[in-house]
Design a protein around this nucleic acid. Sequence first.
DNA 1: ACAATACTTAAGTGGATGCCTAACTATCAA
DNA 2: TTGATAGTTAGGCATCCACTTAAGTATTGT
Lengths: 115, 115
Amino acid sequence: MPNYQAGPLDRMFQALADPTRRVMVERLSRGPASVSELAAPLKMSLPAVVQHLQMLEASGLVRTQKVGRVRTCQLEPGALQLAEQWINDRRLQWERRLDRLGVFLAEDENQEKKT
Amino acid sequence: MPNYQAGPLDRMFQALADPTRRVMVERLSRGPASVSELAAPLKMSLPAVVQHLQMLEASGLVRTQKVGRVRTCQLEPGALQLAEQWINDRRLQWERRLDRLGVFLAEDENQEKKT
DNA sequence: ACAATACTTAAGTGGATGCCTAACTATCAA
DNA sequence: TTGATAGTTAGGCATCCACTTAAGTATTGT
């Protein structure tokens, strides 16, 4: 789609789709960190890290605030729930379907027995 | 990263990051479908749909098989678990951290009372 | 005041993504 | 056998993504 405005789920999953960003999220799930602290274990330039950070912010996963010359980043706790929710809904729908299928097959088996 | 081979989680989240593909997954969570059935509600050409389908297959979310001239697609039930797992692990880590923080604050409060 | 620190901004590059159209192949149905 | 159906293949185009380097701007420690 050309000229399509990405929704929250798009940005969220997109953010999680990159290994570098997942490492950053993992780090932040152990507590807040500055930009340089986030960058330290990553083999790339600082600007690259900041770009990733911006995607994480845009997705709502991470919140940051600058105090003095240090920008501190932390996880937005509720944010991951959005993705989790969507996945869970699919699983439920799928399981409900299998249940119905199970009932159907059971009924079918009854038919067999009657015959 | 240049020359980087995408891992399973990358492909999985990447697959889920597109609204068209999520619609396809939603459809499939209600039961198997042919390619044209998947394409029907989507405002794009068949080849485009097939490309999306290929990403879903590559991510392991969807399995397909061709019988005669029709390709039938279904969800790979366990696949979503991978993503769900990762998200859950982050949540747990975060919550454990908050617990420790809570303990720390409680202890701190005790200190205060003693003073 | 000066240098080091902690980012920030800007501009550019190569490769992946999300579409498209046109032309093709295989199956099924009459 | 001929035509309709269901996908497939190929090539092209605009945009986005993941980097880079180079050059800035605030803060802070001495």
